[in-house]
């Protein structure tokens, strides 16, 4: 089904609005790209870089992050297949944060020139990409709320809920099970918590039967219960009806 890796991007762009037209899909599938295999924990672009291409996640998971001078790291967002996490570099030339892999990745790199040409010949796609960057900002607002206002238990439950709903929307969950190869230290960096407290809170979430998480795979036996514990409202993901449902 995904013979052209950019079918991932098409599927992703259809998560929140109606289907793309055949002409739009064809234009995306004709984009020139470079496929690259990248190992785990590698940077795709670093703060200060001036990239000339955007990255589509084809396989694997990525995160955007900032490093502090004292060595601390804040993970700003997680990215799943279909995402184009550095889309902003098309218009903001210097990276103000870094993008890196969490797991081994396959990525499709598309030049800025090709993306500009794409939205010139298919102007409605510019609206799609604009919409994506607005949703990107909505997710950041939710993460600010998460880190600032939820306790550790709800905060971690929220990250897991969001990860699941986003993966499910692009067809990468199997029933209630999904790949979740995120380390506790990465979860700590994403939630502003110590690894010690992440470990304790995850064990409590597990003990309460809200997740089964073994060897990088996570199962949510009762999504409604996890959503309640997380105070999770999927409105900020702006998905089409059905994609965000319980």
């Amino acid at each position: 089904m995904f013979e052209n890796p950019l079918n991932r991007l098409i599927r992703r762009l259809e998560v929140d609005t109606t289907a793309l037209s055949q002409a739009e899909k064809d234009a995306i599938l004709r984009l020139p790209m470079t496929i690259k295999e990248v190992g785990a924990d590698q940077d795709i672009v670093r703060e200060g870089d001036r990239p000339t291409q955007c990255c589509v996640v084809v396989e694997g998971f990525q995160c955007r992050y900032k490093m502090l001078l004292d060595g601390g790291r804040q993970i700003l967002s997680f990215h799943v297949p279909g995402d184009m996490p550095d889309l902003q570099s098309l218009f903001l030339s210097t990276m103000d944060h870094s993008l890196g892999t969490l797991t081994p990745n396959r990525v499709a790199l598309i030049s800025h020139d090709a993306l500009r040409e794409l939205i010139r010949v298919q102007p409605a796609l510019a609206e799609r990409f604009w919409r994506e960057s607005l949703i990107d900002a909505a997710i950041f607002r939710e993460w600010i709320t998460n880190v600032g206002s939820r306790d550790a238990y709800a905060r971690l439950a929220h990250v897991i809920c969001e990860f699941y709903v986003r993966l499910r929307a692009v067809g990468l969950t199997k029933d209630a099970t999904f790949d979740f190869p995120i380390t506790q230290t990465e979860l700590a960096d994403a939630t502003g918590l110590s690894t010690v407290h992440v470990n304790r809170s995850i064990q409590q979430i597990r003990a309460n039967g809200l997740i089964i998480w073994e060897r990088g795979a996570c199962t949510i036996p009762n999504l409604a219960a996890l959503k309640e514990a997380a105070m999770f409202e999927p409105n900020y993901l702006h998905m089409r009806e059905g994609n965000a449902a319980a």
Binding site: D151, A152, Y153, L193, S194, T195, V196, H197, R200
Partner: peptide, 8 residues
């Protein structure tokens, strides 16, 4: 870790 425990 202790500071986080205290926070909650």
């Amino acid at each position: 870790g202790l500071a986080d425990l205290a926070h909650d």
